[in-house]
Amino acid sequence: MDIAHFLDILWLARIPILKGLGFTISISLLAICFGTLLGIFVGLALTYGVRPLRWIVRGYTDFIRGTPVLVLVLASYYVLSTIGLDLSPFQAGVLALAVFCSSHVGEIVRGALQAIPKGQTEAAKAIGLTFPQTFAYVLGPQALRQVLPAWVNTAAEMVKASTLLSIIGVAELLLRTQEIISRSFLSLEFYFFAGFLYFIINYAIERFGRYVERKTAIPS
């Protein structure tokens, strides 16, 4: 291994790597944002939805959670263009990740809401709160504390899953890395380097999650 040679190539490839990193981060952010919005709806529908809606949403989450993310990404990429939706690989990939994210967030939200003891709702009713008020002041804030750490974890999952978009040709960090390797043949060094970058991002997210958990903990 020639460190100086690797550093030379790394310096030459800095722009594509930074661009790839930018793509990775935008893919993850978009997937998390859309996925979370959809996921909150999924979680609420699973917990409070009327029966037919609950069944439909249950079917949706079970199907998504039973399918590998890579299959979602490939299906989204191939299928959407076939039915005439002209999405770029980037858009198709983000859509697949957002759908994946929504099923995760949905389950997290449902789990958090159902974990709240029934007595909380009863106590809120007993002092005369309506259901929207009960949700806003009693259930929501308690569920949010439960959800936050797991949600931050999902964010890290999204960063990891964003690598799958390299397979449909989105020029994110991993695909850029592979391009550099195909020219420089430094596969050990550059795969290691890419892995290291991902590790740093995810480790930071994980630490942040622990911090959030501590910050929002209820004193006892």
Binding site: A123, A124, Y137, V138, I218
Partner: peptide, 13 residues
């Protein structure tokens, strides 16, 4: 009416 419960049911947060 006001109600007090067996399990208190205070809002923990």
């Amino acid at each position: 009416t006001g109600m007090a419960f067996q399990q208190f049911n205070l809002f923990p947060h």
